[in-house]
C-alpha cells in the first residue's frame, strides 16, 4: 500500500483550497484581518488559531462552533484510521472536543497553532487508550475492516490517511523515507517496531525518519 501511495503521480490540485479549509459546513465563520502577504494555507491556519484564542479568552460559543466544524470531522477521520471502531470513535471525539472547550486556557499560540494543539490533544487521548489496554490495542490488526461503515476506508487506506496536502508534502521525499514517516505517524509504530517489520537496522530506520523529517521541515516552516 505504501508503495502504491508513493508511486502515485503528484496531484497538482493538492494545494487548492478545499471545502474543509473554508469551513463551509454552515457553522458561523468569523472574519479575520486579511494579510496580503499570506498564502491560503497560512490564512486557514491563522484563522483556526484566532478562533481558538477567542474560545480561550472570551469563552465564545460561536467561535467554538466554527472550530468544531473545522476539526471534528478531521479528528474523527484520524481516529478511524488508527483502527478505532465507529462507536468508540464518537466517544473519544467527544472527549477531545470537550478538552478543546474546557482546556482552551492551556492553549498558547506562541507554542503551537490550533491544529497542532488539537492534534496533540487527540494524540494524548490515543496514548491513554493504548496504555489502558496495555498494548492489546497495538496488537490488533489496525486495518481490519468488517462493518459496511468501514468500506469508505477500505481502499488505499494510507493514501487516504495521508491524502491531499499530506501527499504533496511527502511527495518530495524518497519513498523509503516517506514510508517510515507514514508507519510512525499513521500506523503508530515506533522506530524499533518499524526496524523489526522491515528487517532493517534501527539506525537505518532512524536516519530515514530524520532525513525525511528534515526535508519536510522546510515545507512546514512555510506553512507555520
Amino acid at each position: 500500500m505504501l508503495h502504491k501511495l508513493m508511486t502515485k503521480p503528484h496531484d497538482p490540485t493538492a494545494h487548492e483550497p478545499t471545502a474543509d479549509d473554508a469551513g463551509t459546513d454552515g457553522a458561523a465563520i468569523v472574519p479575520f484581518p486579511v494579510d496580503a502577504g499570506r498564502t491560503e494555507e497560512n490564512d486557514s491556519a491563522a484563522h483556526e488559531t484566532q478562533l481558538l484564542v477567542r474560545v480561550r479568552d472570551q469563552r465564545d460559543r460561536n467561535a467554538y462552533q466554527a472550530l468544531f466544524g473545522l476539526f471534528a470531522g478531521k479528528v474523527q477521520g484520524y481516529l478511524r484510521r488508527t483502527g478505532i471502531d465507529p462507536a468508540d470513535a464518537e466517544n473519544i471525539l467527544q472527549d477531545i472536543m470537550l478538552a478543546v472547550w474546557q482546556k482552551a486556557n492551556l492553549f498558547d499560540p506562541q507554542r503551537a497553532s490550533a491544529r497542532t494543539w488539537i492534534f496533540s490533544l487527540a494524540r494524548n487521548r490515543l496514548i491513554d487508550i493504548k496504555r489502558s489496554l496495555k498494548r492489546e490495542y497495538a496488537a490488533l490488526e489496525r486495518y481490519s475492516l468488517e462493518t459496511a461503515d468501514d468500506q469508505v476506508y477500505e481502499e488505499d487506506m494510507l493514501a487516504r490517511a495521508a491524502g491531499g496536502k499530506s501527499v504533496a508534502l511527502l511527495a518530495h521525499l524518497p519513498p523509503e523515507q516517506a514510508s517510515v514517516l507514514l508507519m510512525a505517524y499513521v500506523e503508530g509504530k515506533s522506530h524499533r517496531e518499524i526496524a523489526l517489520e522491515l528487517k532493517l537496522p534501527i539506525g537505518t530506520v532512524k536516519s530515514r525518519a530524520r532525513l525525511g523529517f528534515q526535508r519536510v521541515r522546510a515545507l512546514l516552516e512555510q506553512a507555520k
Binding site: 471534528a72 479528528v75 491531499g164 508534502l169
Partner: peptide, 23 residues
C-alpha cells in the same frame, strides 16, 4: 512542535469522517 505539526498535516489532511456529535 514541528513533528506535531507534521502529524496534524498528515493525519488531519486525509478524508474527514462525518461525526454525529455536534458542537
Amino acid at each position: 512542535r514541528r513533528a506535531e505539526q507534521l502529524g496534524a498535516e498528515l493525519l488531519f489532511g486525509g478524508q474527514p469522517a462525518a461525526p454525529k456529535l455536534t458542537a
